[in-house]
Lab assay of single mutants.
Amino acid sequence: GSLMYASIFGNVSAIIQRLYSGTARYHTQMLRVREFIRFHQIPNPLRQRLEEYFQHAWSYTNGIDMNAVLKGFPECLQADICLHLNRSLLQHCKPFRGATKGCLRALAMKFKTTHAPPGDTLVHAGDLLTALYFISRGSIEILRGDVVVAILGKNDIFGEPLNLYARPGKSNGDVRALTYCDLHKIHRDDLLEVLDMYPEFSDHFWSSLEITFNLRDTNMIPGSPGSTELEGGFSRQRKRKLSFRRRTDKDTEQPGEVSALGPGRAGAGPSSRGRPGGPWGESPSSGPSSPESSEDEGPGRSSSPLRLVPFSSPRPPGEPPGGEPLMEDCEKSSDTCNPLSGAFSGVSNIFSFWGDSRGRQYQELPRCPAPTPSLLNIPLSSPGRRPRGDVESRLDALQRQLNRLETRLSADMATVLQLLQRQMTLVPPAYSAVTTPGPGPTSTSPLLPVSPLPTLTLDSLSQVSQFMACEELPPGAPELPQEGPTRRLSLPGQLGALTSQPLHRHGSDPGS
């Protein structure tokens, strides 16, 4: 009898404990919600809404976190579960008819179910419309201010047509639940991603989709105040780019002037030289400038040598048109050559190039014969006009050509200096018209024969001689050997007369 009593008592207590286990969990969670309300000092109306929603959600799901349970299964099984949970929507909604099984599984994985109690606001006026909503159960109302403009029910759709707008718009009203509602919502990016994977279904979906109420604000059109608020930074940046392009296009129409201050000032006329910023005076940081632009901040801005204009002085008759350009485009679109090309026009420029290279940067340069637009006047290309890779490749080509020119210049200078040193070592320090008596009659020769300089066969020296023939050397430049009979510069000019005159010897006659 005691054994029977113990078994009955144990079973009854276990049954009672299981009955009250759900209630215990409910009270535990309710205590957490109330502690949250007390800690954050939530006001009474919002506090009442929180408690009511918790009670309804507990009775609806029995305190089970559906998302946590669903995430515990593998992905393939999750797709089947989501397809079952959203079967009513996918079967009865017209846009989803005719979709393949794979497309429906992908869509079912992207849908999220939302449960809303009465009085809950789903979308506020001015919120971004980031999702498309399908009503599965219940009814909602749409308000503009305090005026109800629409009441939607089961199988209705609200949001915005995503295929017509590249960016999400703003809501033009509040969406509030009238009863307990079940909503299926899919985010904008998720829907577009699935439709991109199934393009054959995309056309059918957009053609058959009928949005019951379009929440997009109709005033959000390009150029409206609301649109400016939504895309303020983007609009200002776009206007700045367009104004920069218009100014650079105007600059290219004036090829007669070359400016070292950047493309923003290349198009300024002579009357605007004294102004601080020219056409860019209202925004000094709008356009890029070269490193020399920092010198323009000092006094005497109108007389600054940074602004270059072609000189009108005539060229000498024998002067060549100019050196070879550094870039391939210089032959086609440049009416002034790079300062480095002028360094190779003569030997005198070679000796004085490194010492006063900055001073020569603004000297007169030889002109190319074609009066085409200036290379320095070409505006900086924006990322939309020329690819970045093209600019980098041009810079690399320019750097390689500069290296080759520097190597060639160093070799030419070394060769010229070597020839000058050899000339100085071969010439005796001094010569006299009267020579010392020699031991015999073989001493009648006034000077030792001097062998002429070897013929220069280097390509670089031939180019130097060509430049010497075309360029007029300055007075202080050293002379180079030329073709024809060679003669030492330090010898007297009348050596031929010395050989014809008898030598005057000093000596005593033994017979006297």
Rank of each mutant, 00 (worst) to 15 (best):
T436M: 11
G438E: 05
L326R: 10
S208K: 15
S445H: 08
L405M: 05
P284G: 06
A430C: 09
S352C: 04
S508H: 11
A370Q: 10
Q501A: 12
E229L: 09
P310Y: 12
P428E: 08
A370C: 10
L398E: 03
T372P: 14
M424Y: 11
R188L: 04
P454K: 12
E257T: 09
I157T: 09
Q466S: 12
L143A: 07
A414N: 09
S382G: 09
N377F: 03
V149T: 04
G264N: 08
H187E: 11
M413I: 13
R167F: 10
R400L: 10
R301A: 12
S334R: 12
V464E: 12
A430T: 10
F158Q: 02
G281K: 04
A433I: 09
P373E: 08
P325W: 11
W206R: 06
P439N: 05
L426I: 13
Q418V: 07
R301T: 06
P439V: 10
R358G: 12
D196I: 08
E295Y: 03
T336I: 11
L395H: 04
L230F: 07
D296K: 11
S374Y: 10
I211C: 03
Q254Y: 12
P437Q: 08
V147H: 08
L453V: 11
E210W: 02
K332N: 12
P161G: 03
Q463A: 10
I221E: 12
A266G: 12
Q482I: 13
E406C: 04
H204N: 13
T179H: 03
C337P: 10
A131T: 06
L230N: 11
R247G: 10
F134T: 02
R247E: 10
N219I: 12
F134D: 02
E471G: 12
S352L: 03
G440D: 11
Y165N: 10
P437K: 15
D174T: 09
Q482S: 11
L128C: 08
F311Q: 09
F234P: 10
T407L: 08
Q466V: 06
P199Y: 02
L129Q: 01
P383A: 10
S348P: 07
L458W: 13
R367I: 15
D335Q: 10
V258M: 11
P305K: 12
R400G: 10
D509F: 05
T130L: 06
S357Q: 13
F205E: 01
T455A: 08
A477L: 10
G511N: 08
A397Q: 13
G173Y: 11
E253W: 10
S303C: 06
R236L: 11
A397K: 12
I157W: 11
K185Q: 13
A150I: 03
G287L: 09
I135A: 01
I186V: 08
R238E: 12
M220N: 11
D189I: 07
C368A: 08
R358A: 10
Q363S: 12
A433P: 13
A477Y: 15
V464R: 11
T130K: 09
R247Y: 12
L152M: 04
S462T: 13
E392W: 15
D296E: 09
P263V: 11
S271R: 04
S243R: 12
C181R: 02
D189W: 08
P379Q: 06
E253T: 08
P279C: 01
I186D: 03
P168L: 04
S465P: 09
S374H: 04
L365H: 08
S374P: 08
K239N: 15
L132E: 01
P222L: 08
F158G: 03
G281P: 11
R307H: 13
E471S: 11
A266V: 12
T499I: 13
F158V: 05
S313R: 11
L426S: 07
P379H: 04
H506C: 03
I142K: 01
P325N: 04
E328S: 09
Q501H: 05
N214S: 06
P441A: 09
P314C: 09
L398V: 08
P481T: 13
H184C: 09
S451L: 11
